[in-house]
Nucleic acid binder design. Structure first.
Lengths: 239, 239
DNA sequence: GTTTGAATATCGTTC
DNA sequence: GAACGATGTTCAAAC
């Protein structure tokens, strides 16, 4: 396997060649004093400061400061990143085509540059909303004793219903699932589905299933005559 | 200013000391063969592979692969990150308290470890939704000829209205602003506000202002008797 | 290619 | 500290 490589305090020309050589092979890291400008969907500008710049082989560009999970400036893949020397300073230019977004990193002092071979692999996260829906589809009793499954991700004119059941009284039960604290938006979403089926002349109830619900969301829920079932992703994950 | 530091193929003990020494001072980068597990709001596990691990002084932990803007595994600030040696291998353990989330990175082969002094500074992005709202508040004519400003970010029982105007006919005009393509959710949001004021006995119209609108969103808009004004952040940014 | 909605969303602001 | 909504959201699945 190819090994890593690095340069200490390289000349701009040398640094540019290094970046261009390795940028398509793995992860390139550049550390130095830089000023950054971004223009695209919005615009921003960062004053000169020492930062960490990361270039990935798929065209990702990240400019990280010493705090926060998020890069301060970035270009998502697929972007076109090129290193060049302008007026004796290293410049990394990143262009995303659609939408057109440009990031320009001027690095008057390049302290360190490194290349790290790395790869990427498929993975899976457990405990997503999809997992919860799947679980509930096989355990509809958790929502309503004696109910039967009508469908999962059922498309309607006002959006896709997470779970659709039929209760013992013959009524439709629309279920909206959230994997986290449910807010007002979730209740309004559920209300739309219920109103849709009601307008079709169906007898229908609405149930919100989530690990928790905010006070204001609960107020709406009651106001609209909807129901709540507490259910956490943990229950799903361990099932 | 403190300078950078690095280790090549360090012993686990040495690497652990390095990480713990520098983790609160700036950005620490570790490159090596690692397997990663995460458990918290959800759960995931990454098989052994060469990856880039980043630790920031605010407790951020990022595990990056060679593609995508997003880290594969992470813990956001403020988390508590500690390096230790278990059974002769470097382990970085990250714990976030609320909610409780744990990331464990086992690194049997540490190829490279580096510390980069860096800082963090306030910054500003231009062309946000807030910018658009501010601009429209000073140029209500772009929404409705002859209208007057009633308020900005006006709180209601169903949420906060971006912009509230009064038309020449004495009617209220509720304006929902989006800085990007408006989808169905934006239309439903607007509809809620309009219904709220209508229920108060107000004569009211609803206007959605955005650079573009999806086909299905437009269908809802028309169906609900709402209006559309095309307006891009660029117009704001250059104003 | 476009649209749609989830996300371990993260993050700032407000209450 | 909780909650609410924007984000240059990003991302993947559905169409």
């Amino acid at each position: 396997m190819e090994t890593y490589a690095y340069l200490e305090s390289p000349e701009p020309q040398e640094a540019a060649r290094f970046v261009n050589t390795y940028k398509r092979r793995g992860i390139v890291v550049v550390y130095g004093l830089c000023e950054v400008s971004y223009e695209g969907r919005a615009a921003a500008r960062l004053e000169p400061m020492y930062r960490l710049i990361i270039i990935k082989r798929d065209g990702t560009l990240l400019v990280h400061e010493s705090e926060k999970r998020e890069p301060r400036i970035w270009n998502p893949p697929p972007s076109s990143n090129v290193a060049l020397v302008i007026d004796g300073t290293l410049v990394i230019k990143s262009v995303r085509s659609r939408p057109l977004e440009t990031v320009i990193v001027r690095i008057p002092i390049v302290s360190f540059a490194a290349f790290f071979p790395a790869s990427s692999a498929p993975y899976r996260v457990h405990g997503t909303e999809k997992d919860m829906v799947r679980f509930l589809a096989s355990n509809v009793g958790l929502i309503e004793e004696g109910a039967t499954l009508v469908g999962v991700e059922v498309p309607t004119a006002v959006g896709s219903v997470d779970l659709l059941l039929r209760g013992m009284g013959g009524e439709l039960i629309v279920v909206e699932v959230k994997r986290d604290l449910a807010g007002p938006e979730a209740v309004h979403q559920l209300k739309r589905y219920v109103e849709f089926f009601a307008s079709k002349g169906e007898k229908v109830r609405g149930v919100l299933a989530s690990p928790d619900i905010s006070a204001s969301a609960y107020k709406y829920l009651k106001e609209y005559g909807l129901e709540y079932r507490r259910l956490s992703p943990k229950q799903v994950f361990t099932a």
